[in-house]
Amino acid sequence: MNSGVWAITFDLIREALARRWILALLLAMTLVLGGMSLGLSVEVVDGALAATRLFGTSLDNDIRAADVALRPVFEAAAYVIFYGGLCFGILACSDFVPSLLAPGRIEHLLSLPVRRSALIIGTYGGVFLVMAGLAAYGALGFTVVLGLKTGVWTPRLLAAALLAVITFAAIFGVMVTAAVFVRSSALSALAGGALCLAGLFSGNRDQLLPMFEPGKERTAFEIFCVFFPPVAAIARAAGDLAASLPIDRDLLLRQLAGLLLFGAAAVAVGIWRFEQKDF
């Protein structure tokens, strides 16, 4: 990447970290983690979780291996990070590109010795890094709190967070392009939300397909699914990964590669349009 991209990325990160939304999320995550570390009480006997209490309330009556018993917790944390992160990202990051394209700002940026593509790629990269940082903070916090409480140390929550960030990368690619076409944070968020929703269908296509009659309807649904990221499937994989459940590694890697290419393709459409635009 050239220096222009880095400069844009750096500026965006600095701008993002000064935003109230982002600061509020960081504060909220810190409070939740702090609350968990104070309120969660677990009893581990010979590697088995004998009792779990959150603020004195028993959570699960079954006695199982600690890492197995904590799976629902890790799984829930992964889902919270995944879907919570996507929702937050769609809302909080919908304004970055419209703000970049704000009258007065974009003319000035375009007058600088930076390629137009670098402006979009730099903004995209900056948002990606901000979301990756936030997801890593949340996942690392959960890992440390649960690790200290139970002795179960697993990096799988971080891996689950990575899946969330890669999924967001695909969604944000579409948001960038939407904002380039129509400079509106609301429409950008709407595009992200719609893609996320389509991804829920696409990610459950194996279960939904039998509901369609064989023929045109089913073919249309299959084609629809092919062009949208399987968000629900990646979320499931994130949950399974966090819960130490087996996953189809090859399939997951293939889907992740598809997501990254989808995001890149969406950004390329945005750059194509951006290159044509007058400001």
Binding site: D11, R14, E15, A18, R19, S99, A102, P103, G104, R105, E107, H108, S111
Partner: peptide, 10 residues
Amino acid sequence: LPERSYYPPT
């Protein structure tokens, strides 16, 4: 120097 200037609020 553009006619209208926009600066990030922070």
